[in-house]
Design a protein around this nucleic acid. Sequence first.
DNA 1: GTGATAAATTGCGCTAGCGCAAAGAAGGAA
DNA 2: TTCCTTCTTTGCGCTAGCGCAATTTATCAC
Lengths: 233, 233
Amino acid sequence: MSQPSLNELKKVNVFQKASDDDLEFILQNSLVRSIEENSFFFLQGDEAAYLYILLSGRVKITQSNTNGQQVSLRIVYPWQIFGALGAATHKVAVYPASSQTLENSAALAIESSFFRTLMESRPYLAFGMMNLMTGYIQEIQERYRELALERVEQRVASTLIRLAGQSGVKSEKEAGIELIFSRQDVAELTGATLYTISRLLSDWERKGIIQSGRERICILKPHELTLIASNSN
Amino acid sequence: MSQPSLNELKKVNVFQKASDDDLEFILQNSLVRSIEENSFFFLQGDEAAYLYILLSGRVKITQSNTNGQQVSLRIVYPWQIFGALGAATHKVAVYPASSQTLENSAALAIESSFFRTLMESRPYLAFGMMNLMTGYIQEIQERYRELALERVEQRVASTLIRLAGQSGVKSEKEAGIELIFSRQDVAELTGATLYTISRLLSDWERKGIIQSGRERICILKPHELTLIASNSN
DNA sequence: GTGATAAATTGCGCTAGCGCAAAGAAGGAA
DNA sequence: TTCCTTCTTTGCGCTAGCGCAATTTATCAC
């Protein structure tokens, strides 16, 4: 995959107020990396030398414990930034999580130190980054609360709703919102097991709330999910 | 409580590189709020008009669900900033969490809009904020992973270790690290129930790992806790 | 089409941790 | 000292969800 155009780069939230000169400058200090499904842009613990902008494909940001079990922190879609924490701090940093592709993907890799330097003279960039981090903190805080207080059913419901909002494509035939995720993916996103997710989705399918297949969940009745997600008790 | 001195303000990480003029300017646009134990500086959902610097006391940042159950996101100690997310973004924002005092406390309240404006011409402030947010993201991500993957025992152990690092005071007589938290506080910090925490602490006390009392936990064998926290199993 | 591989389903037993209830400390106020 | 409030402990029963194992289904390469 080739370098993105300046106009494409403006789809990146943080770059919305960037001048063409700035974008050009950024492009000159970056490179495109294409990797295939299930491989990693970076691993938890690697030195955070680059920040990435996803150009195509899908990436999950995961964190593992010493046992090898893992959770997904979030899903990255094209024109979103990931691996940026290292650019925000002056210390030498390592990535606190890994980034694994869910499909063949390409990303623009920008040197962290370059970006950090650029931010010093470009307040709009620093504010963009703070904006990004703010949203991210809010999302993970909310998920943390859910994980601590809600049952699997509710967590899965609100995860599906969130995923639908982020990526959902109206399915042509089904008149539903189609999500491309395996049961394992959903398990990692909700803090549950593959088995529990499978049982739950089967149940919802029987009730006509969703329609599902291999690595595919089609939401037929979003409203029902909203109800389940907010079910007090 | 009266306004802090400039030297005191330099204990705030974000202000480390601030000039005396800047600090003076900040003080002029801020006010001191003193409130007693168990009351709130702000509530989840309030308009985020101020960011705070804790001057004395202790504050827990909590999030509640519609049922009224709550989790603690973190504990704030003097010279730490809280309620700052509203200052980082240009949108009108609301606090995503509440801030409740664990003791009688005082905090310096700085207008969010003032601080945001100041950041535009003071890169060191923006970088300080990004630094803060980065550390915060890393901590909550780690806790999220723990909550999803580890058992209560391990979560409590690593929570106590973390609290000890943040606040711990070498207890005179006991030759241990003393933490001032109720069972309920620990429960909210670990995503467990009061009952489970009580049982667990009783157990640890029998084993001589801790020594505990009313709203008080004294860590006698930190190393044992570290072992429990990292128990692969 | 056929075989191989990966994903999903489902039965089954188990247990970590919840949550009620009731009783027992530990302060604090007056 | 005594009362009152708040925090803590502990017994007990229960269940949500885990996790193994075995089977079924879908997809892909050839």
